[in-house]
């Protein structure tokens, strides 16, 4: 749904730009394409990794790892699974809801969702291309540690 909105806004702005200045618009499209072309090889690698990961780690496997009573070990596992997987939100949330129903705790789900969003092991090579090794590793590491705090608070408030 949100992608339609994004398309709508993009088309309106693009038309506006076109009527104002054709040359500039052509330049904008060229720049957009160049930025895309620059990073496409890395994107493709990420997509293949995601394919392998999702093939190995289906919801059943994940819920076995972070099921009921798995405690802090389960939280750590959930954080690790969340860090290495890259699942779009519209798959992740229903999956998380399923895992909850299957008996996982809120704390584990909190760690899973938080790391899923903030930590991207698979995309680290892409991130390094833009932010360098140090900043990329630091950002992911901090986000990983922070996710345990998120998990703890969610476990306290919701669980």
């Amino acid at each position: 749904m949100d992608s339609y909105l994004l398309y709508g806004i993009t088309i309106v702005l693009l038309l506006l730009s076109f009527f104002k200045d054709r040359k500039k618009t052509r330049m904008a499209l060229k720049k957009g394409w160049k930025a895309f072309d620059n990073i496409l090889p890395q994107f493709l690698v990420v997509i293949l990794f995601v394919g392998v990961m999702l093939a190995v780690l289906d919801p059943q496997t994940i819920s076995r790892l972070i099921g009921k009573g798995s405690g802090w070990v389960g939280v750590i596992l959930a954080a690790m699974v969340g860090s290495i997987t890259l699942i779009p939100g519209f798959v992740a949330f229903p999956t998380a809801a399923l895992i909850l129903q299957a008996g996982a705790g809120y704390m584990q789900i909190g760690a899973f969702i938080s790391t899923l969003m903030m930590v991207g092991v698979v995309t680290i090579p892409v991130e390094i291309k833009y932010f360098g090794k140090k900043m990329t590793l630091l950002r992911n590491l901090m986000a990983f540690i922070f996710s345990f705090f998120v998990a703890y608070v969610i476990g306290r408030v919701v669980g």
């Binding site: 702005l13 330049m27 957009g32 895309f36 997509i47 394919g51 999702l54 093939a55």
Partner: peptide, 29 residues
Amino acid sequence: KAISISARSFVEMLFIIPPVFVLLGLLDV
């Protein structure tokens, strides 16, 4: 399974990503 999931994510990417890069170009210009 891996290949079919990758193919699906690739199609998804082709659908979601173009506006982001067009906006990026417009922003730049």
